[in-house]
Nucleic acid binder design. Structure first.
Lengths: 353, 353
DNA sequence: ACAGCCTATCGAATCGTTTCGACCCGCGAG
DNA sequence: CTCGCGGGTCGAAACGATTCGATAGGCTGT
């Protein structure tokens, strides 16, 4: 057992020894938490370079500190879907912003942990952002609260005790509907977001609404129904232009009893509906009025601007990030209620008589 | 010092004490790494419930294990941009797939750590995926290699020693160009992706190419130039439809010397060019042929299908994920070379005489 | 010249697990 | 009847850092 080599990575203790200082001093050199004489610092740095030490092990640091510098964002369903939805991406954007002064990383997770990875239960994160509270998300919420970590729920009905970022979906949807009604429309059809994780493209029935788990869809629907209680509705299987086209075709198929206006629960769906209408030779807005929801920048609309309710998507994320930041600072977090702004566009017009 | 309450979270040691077993035994109950008598297990679980213990602290566990179960994905530039790019989102999708059996989380990071968060240097992750090697990414690569963590580079020129996922960008671009040339086009203009992190919308000069840091753009350009050495080119500021429109207008502005074909380095840019052409009353493909790159599903093209080179975006991500998984298992990782498939669409036609 | 104060450094405790080797005990085989 | 084996449990040593209180000089003010 002569020169038995130990190819394990050097630790800060090795560096300290090599530099002839205490490990605590070496630690301080790297963290910069206290003053260190320039000469000492350089000695430590030199030793680190010689040993190929690349800085403190984040795992050990996070154990000792009690912080990992990571915030988990729990999305519902396939990650790809999240990336595809402009509202979600805008929100993520705002979130990075709101989290900026924490300089925290963002850990993407799905809430469908199901049987596989115990993911959410033991991810080394400092806080959670839960998005769109479905049934599954409620389960996730339990777990997170059990772990005693800060959590913010975006657009989901967690209890009163959990800080949330909410949107006036119901009122905003009602506002869109009133605009359509005021234009004289009476035959109105609706396109909703998925109602539950089944995500089926199906007519909306009272039973389905009663069992729905996706609050956003339910709330917007209820707002619209305040104005058009009996409007037929079809739930889309996702917020996609192509889905809008499919549902649009369904709603417009029967030339006899075609609605004069279609209100969609997302801009992407609305664009799809417009496209379906154009396929059928209908003019928007002369023959058919179409309204959306979200207020995203969507292209492929030629000269039209969509009538919609503009939701503060980026702001949603930023607000969530800020609340997280506050909680991590030990301050109490509050629920923030954000509001949408109605925007009259050129895709809605007076109803044809 | 009577009943001094300690409101700190219970540890596994507390649980063990409460259950009257050794902490090692309690640990095993939670990790399931060894056999535990049913009676004992239940005693431990009961104690945990009583104390409100929510399972082992992931930070401590990851220190001890040397694994955190997180893989970092380093993107270039603003996260929002990443979410907006269909190729990137598809790749992320594949990545989650390839990483699936690790049940690892995905930590999103930007490589522009700059002065702020030391992000990449001390994120508690097990491995890195670097995407699109710009100059900054090369710096990131240094750091990561210094930490001795597994890393895969997607479409970037890391050294030979780093496992990479590469694409035959040059050859694929040449193939598109040959198709266009074979249709008789001689006046061809190009729209490139950003050449560097400045992302300026500017004519491409030899100097700019020489200083370019974004390899994808350079490679595709060189492929195209194999066929059209002198074609004028303008670099877009991003892969966006709107950018394509802007650049398209620039290229088509002068009715006198309009190209008969435009080759764009991404499908989104190509769609933008088509839109710009339509604005000017040009018919595609009769008056102007347009080709793209990527092969994404892009809508807003009415009946046309884009002539393009279909890149295996999802596969790129999956391959990266698989390599990471292998390295984490201790197996050697290999560089994988993926290829694009040319797809002739209806946006290119014989050159008008 | 002395009390007092900073500053730079050091030691040692701690963060909460996991894991490895030892140990005990009961049981089947010889 | 004894030996060996294996399941179940225990102790204690890592894992690699951070941080707090203590210490030793060097300096200022009087």
């Amino acid at each position: 057992m002569s020169s038995q080599e130990t190819p394990r990575r050097p630790t800060i203790a090795d560096v300290a020894r090599q530099a002839g200082v205490a490990t605590s001093t070496a630690s301080v050199v790297f963290s910069g938490k206290a003053n260190v004489a320039t000469a000492t610092r350089e000695r430590v740095l030199k030793a680190a370079a010689e040993l190929g030490y690349a800085g403190p092990d984040p795992r050990a640091a996070s154990l000792r500190r009690g912080r990992s510098g990571i915030v988990a964002v729990v999305l519902e369903g396939h990650l790809r879907a999240a990336f595809l939805d402009p509202v979600t991406t805008a929100m993520m954007d705002g979130l990075t912003d709101g989290l900026a002064d924490l300089s925290a990383g963002i850990l993407l997770m799905r809430d469908e942990s199901g049987e596989e990875g115990p993911a959410i239960a033991d991810a080394p994160v400092d806080a959670f952002v839960l998005i769109g509270c479905s049934g599954r998300t409620k389960a996730s919420l339990e777990v997170v609260l059990g772990r005693g970590l800060p959590v913010v729920v975006i657009e989901g009905d967690a209890g009163e005790t959990v800080p949330r970022i909410t949107l006036d979906n119901t009122e905003a949807a009602a506002q869109v509907a009133r605009h359509v009604r005021d234009l004289g429309h009476q035959d109105v059809a609706l396109v909703t977001l998925p109602l539950d994780s089944e995500r089926e493209r199906l007519p909306v029935t009272p039973e389905r609404v009663a069992n729905a788990t996706i609050d956003v869809a339910v709330h917007r629907l209820s707002g619209t129904r305040q104005v058009f209680p009996d409007a037929p509705a079809i739930s889309a299987s996702g917020s996609l232009i192509d889905e809008g086209v499919l549902v649009g075709r369904m709603l417009l198929a029967d030339a006899e009893k075609r609605p004069t206006a279609i209100i969609a629960q997302s801009d992407l769906l609305a664009v799809g509906v417009i496209r379906a209408a154009e396929e059928l030779g209908l003019r928007v807005p002369e023959d058919l009025s179409v309204a959306g929801f979200d207020g995203i920048a969507v292209d492929g609309l030629s000269d039209l601007t969509l009538t919609t309710s503009v939701q503060p998507a980026v702001e949603k994320g930023r607000a969530a990030g800020e609340q997280i930041a506050r909680m991590l600072r030990g301050e109490p977090a509050v629920t923030q209620h954000l509001t949408c702004v109605f925007r009259a566009g050129t895709t809605t017009a007076r109803a044809p008589r």
